[in-house]
């Protein structure tokens, strides 16, 4: 197992290095001068030039890249041109909110999507299957921003059940930051009022973000179940008198979800990218809006750091997916 994981990690490292080089080159190709953003609206050309020199922006690109690599090696991601704070600090402050939202959306997608997919497969060509097929097409087709506004109108404006935006009500004091994950911090602080409020704030963004993933997982699980049900071992186990529930949830499901697990790994990247829109609509304080702001202001350090970070997280999740694949089908581990 360890060898399997190490091999996967070793394969990921060159990809991350490539990502860093390509991102660095692309960002420097954009005709935007960070010194201008740093100097601000009322700055003179002299002020801008001074900043350019101060931050080494007047040096050749290869030299800037070498300096940046040296810093990254020591986990120094530089200083943001627009918040004027260390990028690592800004990211550490925001990433938990994004991950909290992403994992909740992923959990919703998986824990609802897999059973629904199994049901659709078992009820092949009956009305529940037709219904779920329509749902999965709609789920993929519907734009997240439209769905978000519909949820806001229904659950916040009409019914008044759930908050419209943000991650915590202004009247509730934030718990002491321990992990950065608001729900966890609320529990650690024993603040159930804050936990409940934070959970309610999480519902609409998580549901919005999960929709596309949910639909995808339903489709892939359904297809996997339909395929597995045709295998001989299913007929054999049926003939052997295995209980239906045991047969489906252990033997059929295990053999059906390989493609679904692969999709989950891919979905994770999609959820982080899709989170930019969802975070903006629900004013969710994650890295999405931070990244958008960095792009609009030409803040290179932030763009580089966020790309590298998202790439690393994405790679990590896909290593995890590979491990799960290996656990589901030990032959994969033996082959590698």
């Amino acid at each position: 197992m360890l060898r399997f994981v190490l091999r996967r990690v070793a394969l990921v490292l060159p990809s991350l290095a490539g990502l860093l080089v390509v991102t660095f080159l692309l960002i420097h190709a954009v005709p935007s001068d960070p010194a201008v953003a740093m100097a601000g609206d009322a700055a003179t050309p002299e002020q801008i030039e001074r900043l350019r020199k101060q931050y080494g922006l007047d040096r050749p690109i290869w030299e800037q890249f070498a300096v940046y690599l040296g810093k990254v090696a020591t986990l120094d991601l530089g200083e943001s041109a627009f918040t004027r704070r260390p990028v690592a600090r800004d990211i550490v402050q925001r990433l938990p909110a994004t991950l909290e939202l992403t994992f909740c959306a992923l959990a919703l997608s998986v824990f609802i999507g897999v059973p629904l997919g199994v049901m659709a497969g078992l009820k092949h060509n009956t009305w529940p299957d037709y219904l779920l097929r329509v749902f999965s097409v709609l789920g993929i087709a519907v734009a997240a921003f439209w769905f978000a506004i519909m949820l806001q109108l229904l659950f916040s404006m009409q019914l008044g059940w759930l908050p419209l935006r943000g991650e915590l009500d202004v009247s509730i004091a934030r718990p002491t930051r321990v992990t950065g994950f608001l729900l966890l911090d609320c529990l650690i602080a024993g603040r159930l009022d804050a936990f409940a409020d934070a959970a309610r704030h999480l519902v609409l963004p998580a549901v919005t973000l999960s929709l596309g993933g949910l639909a995808t997982i339903v489709r892939f699980t359904r297809a996997g179940v339909l395929d597995t049900l045709q295998h001989d071992f299913v007929f054999y186990e049926r003939a052997m008198g295995y209980r239906r529930l045991r047969l489906i949830w252990i033997y059929v499901l295990r053999n059906s979800v390989t493609a679904t697990v692969t999709q989950i790994g891919l979905l994770f990247g999609g959820l982080i990218a899709g989170g930019v829109v969802v975070e903006a609509i629900f004013d969710w304080p994650g890295i999405g809006s931070y990244t958008v702001q960095a792009i609009l202001t030409g803040d290179r350090q932030v763009m580089l750091a966020v790309t590298l970070l998202v790439g690393t997280v994405y790679a990590g999740v896909n290593i995890l997916v590979d491990v799960v694949h290996g656990l589901l089908d030990p032959r994969l581990m033996e082959r590698t």
Binding site: V30, P31, P34, A37, L296, G298
Partner: peptide, 9 residues
């Protein structure tokens, strides 16, 4: 375009 590109230009 975006503000930072325009002011740079």
């Amino acid at each position: 375009n975006i503000w930072s590109n325009l002011t740079t230009a």
